[in-house]
Design a protein around this nucleic acid. Structure first.
Lengths: 258, 258
DNA sequence: CAGGAAAAACTGGTCTGACCAGTAGCGTCT
DNA sequence: AGACGCTACTGGTCAGACCAGTTTTTCCTG
């Protein structure tokens, strides 16, 4: 196999197996090149691959850093690499919520079953933050709360899938949240659901936790559907990440027909 | 932004917006470099980024090609680009099955609810094939059957997620299937579950379908667990794709404490 | 003329060494 | 002390060379 690939895999392994924590700086390209006895070009190619895969982030003049698994870096302006395909297909939002309903339920179930005291501590902290902040301001506490629960499920596959789905949704739902929360009765329902979910997990009631979690997602989904049907079109998929978006690349290769 | 990034985005846009079809060859590095008036190094870095993101595949001496979205190209020897992380972590297999239990259940539920006559026809066809072939021979009919059901759910997100999970599992479980099927009572149970699942969907009984599907996955999962505990170690994760797998990277950077 | 082997013309993979461009630390000079 | 500027980092880009697979062309041989 190509050396650059070899190296990108070794680095990835090293990072994901815990050798390097998120946010941590990795050695400079020149150091890596020297240490691994390959040219800097190779190192750069390997790093670009990891970059494409979302494992590291690179900043000019500063260095390369291990990316936080959950794309919490600053804004939620980045798309989940896999699924950007689906963006722009309206119906997908509900397909997404449909699946998420199920997975959040399972996560809650497992969390109620497996949460350690440390997990519970984290969940409690997130829950407090959730209750204290005004839901109108931003969606971060909400995200943090659910995140803590998912992690307490101790199922990495679940964590991974949900983080993917969620980061996809942030793009699309974000605009809607502001419209959704103001309605007093909805806000109340959501707060109540959060509280129920919290209690169920704390008291180790898997079935109850699952039920509440799925109901929660379904409620949000239904609310969105309602809004849409009433003509208040949910703003969707028009967040253009970084300014690039010419929609025509400007590149124009000639013919490549067989 | 860096030129290499700029270019990787332009190429990606071009590909994903349909300018280039999956499997199609993209121009050589030297051509791209000339056309875009940048050095070949830049082109290579951009291509590696797309490679990391799973958008293209590159073969020495041949060129770079647009990757097919669903990794259906030939054999199932390639890993889903996202999750190769987890490979080699033993427990993950059961985490996987845990999640799959839920999703297969949901797929069955939705299929029973939404399957059109065409879907049902497909499912029936797959089911016949499943009954006629000897399960010992290969797992393809089984895969086809479940696949048909998932597609009948009419939820692209679900289809996508399950295809990802499945391709991951094929690597790990494949070896076990041969050991699993021979046991007569197990084979019978599985056949019965398939039949029940088929009937439930055909008769439009969502709840029943879901129940059977989850039970099916759980049964397989439990069976694997059993085998493992009895010492017949399930052969797992020792399929090393391309030769790499040192599990210790050999790289050892010095300290990087703040 | 047909077949097949050698040669040439591709492709990507790697190396080298240079220079540009942001960033941060350190010392000096006001 | 505070602003300047030097210097030594960091990544970003370039040019040109050579190696290693793959495909096509050429040309000699049977």
């Amino acid at each position: 196999m190509a050396i650059s690939q070899e190296i990108s895999y070794r680095l990835e392994r090293l990072i994901l197996d815990g050798g390097l924590a998120p946010g941590q700086k990795i050695p400079s390209e020149r150091q890596l090149a020297a240490r691994l006895r390959v040219s800097r070009a190779i190192i750069r190619e390997a790093l670009h691959e990891l970059q494409g895969r979302g494992v590291i982030e690179t900043r000019h003049g500063k260095g390369s850093f291990v990316a936080s698994l959950v794309p919490e870096t600053g804004e939620f302006e980045e798309q989940s690499p896999l699924m950007q395909l689906y963006e722009g297909h309206p119906r997908t939002l509900y397909d997404l919520l449909e699946v998420r309903e199920q997975l959040e339920g399972q996560a809650a179930f497992l969390a109620a079953q497996r949460a350690t005291s440390l997990d519970k501590h984290r969940i409690t902290k997130a829950f407090r933050a959730l209750e204290e902040t005004d839901p109108l301001s931003n969606a971060k506490p909400d995200h943090g709360f659910h995140q803590a629960i998912v992690e307490a499920s101790h199922n990495p596959v679940l964590v991974h899938l949900l983080s993917g789905l969620k980061s996809m949704m942030l793009l699309t739902v974000h605009a809607a949240v502001a419209n959704l929360n103001p309605r007093e009765e909805m806000r109340k329902t959501i707060v109540r659901q959060h509280r129920q979910l919290y209690d169920a997990i704390m008291n180790c009631k898997p079935a109850a936790a699952q039920k509440v979690a799925t109901a929660h997602v379904r409620f949000v989904s239904d609310a969105l559907k309602d809004m849409e049907q009433q003509g208040n079109k949910v703003i969707r998929s028009q967040v253009i990440p970084n300014g690039r978006n010419p929609h025509q690349s400007g590149i124009d290769f000639g013919r490549h027909s067989p």
